[in-house]
Design a protein around this nucleic acid. Structure first.
Lengths: 118, 118
DNA sequence: CATACACTTAACTGCTAGGTTAAGTATATG
DNA sequence: CATATACTTAACCTAGCAGTTAAGTGTATG
């Protein structure tokens, strides 16, 4: 359970960065080398290298070294985890605004200092 | 398009923090005041206040002030955006590992310096 | 009107994400 | 063996996040 949460944390952390999110999209099309990602994103190799480390820490990519080239490919399991987390809210799609108006007034009536009077 | 991407950015940024993710889960159950969130998460009011600002910037919550109490409620639209982004990968669930082994070798054969020889 | 409550704002601090350049390592090529 | 390629590592810098305490603002309550 704790481990699940930590995984989710690292996934959200990884995807919190625009570059890394774009890298994931690129890798979802096809595997790429680190150099390819660097030029695709207009960043230096060390910079991309760090991003790759973060994606690896979140287990969102795996690599295969052939010769001196490192090919990266996407791992979709963490994305399923993300999808699961997101789906917990879907039963209530479209039922947002109406709730607060009623709720807040009722709760206010209950928890305000007026309540203590009774 | 650009605006969509910015929205997505702010959503990922907001959810990149454990506290804020938990706050969203709490608010998905029912609206809460800022003080409630502060005690629920064991943080000071100013700290929670900042987190709320981030969630508001991502349009993930809206507030209603009644008297001196600020009630916060979830807005689920941004979560749908997140779900959409995540779903772009779902057509390929479970087709990860097998791809790289073949791909990398073929690509290596093509793009390696040997290619320049031809 | 005084006091408490529910924030809000300001000012400051520690930490770290994300970038850089420069130097080091591993592999391929002539 | 020399040189180029594809990273990797180290060292450093800057901006901004996430927290704190302390003081300020708006709204009830006696």
């Amino acid at each position: 359970m704790d481990q699940v949460k930590d995984e989710l944390s690292s996934v959200f952390e990884a995807l919190g960065n625009d570059h890394r999110r774009d890298m994931i999209v690129l890798l979802s099309i096809r595997p790429r080398s680190i150099s390819e990602l660097a030029t695709a994103r207009g960043l230096s190799l060390p910079a991309i290298h760090k991003h790759v480390r973060v994606l690896e820490a979140a287990a969102m990519v795996h690599r295969r070294k052939i010769g001196r080239t490192n090919f990266l490919a996407i791992r979709r399991e963490p994305l399923r985890l993300l999808q699961q987390w997101t789906n917990q809210f879907s039963p209530w799609w479209g039922t947002d605004a109406e709730s607060l108006d009623n709720y807040a007034e009722n709760l206010a009536a209950q928890t305000t200092d007026k309540e203590k009077k009774r």
